[in-house]
Design a protein around this nucleic acid. Sequence first.
DNA 1: TCTGGGGTCCTAGGACCC
DNA 2: TCTGGGGTCCTAGGACCC
Length: 421
Amino acid sequence: MSRQDGRDRQVSADSVDSSTATILHVDLDAFFASVELLDRPELAHLPVVVAGKSLRSVVTAANYPARKYGVRSAIPLSQALRLCPKAIVLEPHFEKYRYFSKQVMEIFDDVTPLVERLGIDEAFLDVSGAKGLLGSPAEVATLIRRRVHEETRLSCSVGAASTKFVAKLASGRAKPDGLLVVPADQTLSFLHPLPVGALWGVGAITEDALTRRGLRTIGDIARSPLSALQRAVGEATGQRLHDLANGRDPRSVTTASVEKSVGHEVTFEVDTIDADALRLELLRQANAVAVRLRTAGWVGRTVVLKLRYDDFTTITRSRTLAESTDVGRRIFEEVRGIYEALGRHNPVRLIGVRMEQLTEGDGQQLGLWDADESWREAEDTIDAVTARFGRGMLRPASLLKVDAPRGDAQNAHRIDYEPPA
DNA sequence: TCTGGGGTCCTAGGACCC
DNA sequence: TCTGGGGTCCTAGGACCC
């Protein structure tokens, strides 16, 4: 194996034969925090976390000085501040992250057409075809790291291996600002000492189930009989863990992915039992989901309502429609029906709407800025208005002004209405 | 000051059909 | 009168990932 880090950028990548490690996993270091610090370089050596304003927010990113205190992504902000009271809290700016993500992904696209994006800040690259033009995988990785730093001032870490899973583990071990190459013939010696929690798909609960059976390292999993593993964690997971632990990962780097669902959810600042407020939120989310469906040219057939109560118990209820839809009003009616069928409620902490069973639209709907589509938006807005001010107080149609010039996406659903006197 | 928001995948039970 | 097995669809919940 060969490790390269920020102090030692050019040296060790050449010291090992990387020709079998043709899959790269590139991961930006502490991405959200690093982007924020581009504008606030004077804070870079201080503990910084990125988190929303809400009292109920969680840490979405922590820089390395903050991690020294045990602050990590996904822990509640309140806990982070207990661990590190001096931490500086910055609000997230997702537009900026998308911008930098695009810059970085374009560098990847320059290197190989085989790029598989994984969220906003990481990707797999198959560089087996780059050998002639750009050099060995280690050389390609070094090139990527240099370009990312030169063009964005962000640092990233790269793992190079013969499979996706090992490449991802390697990038994690290379962090921050490093490169780790694991040649194919060193895969098992790299994997087997690692704890089971390092396996893809093993979180806290599965880790517990495995360690209770005396399986502590990936090597233990590799040597465990498949059937015993499957009894412990289920058929599919058992098979997958057994394969990964033995260095088998058949997944190739794939560029296209098909979305299976779209949804929105929100956690309230304060738990609520106000049925009107909940309905209004459902309407807002149903519309937002519908807009995303139409923008993508999809329709969905299964409507899912998600509720989390004040005691954190979470339920989902779904209904499958006879016909797929991309109309906010239709989604709202269904989800409202599901909600009302539930009867009485404890205080609600979170509410969400999701559409599943997505397929391509039939082409009848010409887009957001089609006049008919805009009228659907108008109808949804009428519902929002009447939900807020009460039915019978409005003659909605006469109060609405729909501004939707054909083909003008910007104004497509800007709908003005006059609130009641 | 306990626990976000976007998702994917898997399991298990029941209905229903052949 | 009692009872197969396979396959698909639907629903609910939960683990996990970024």
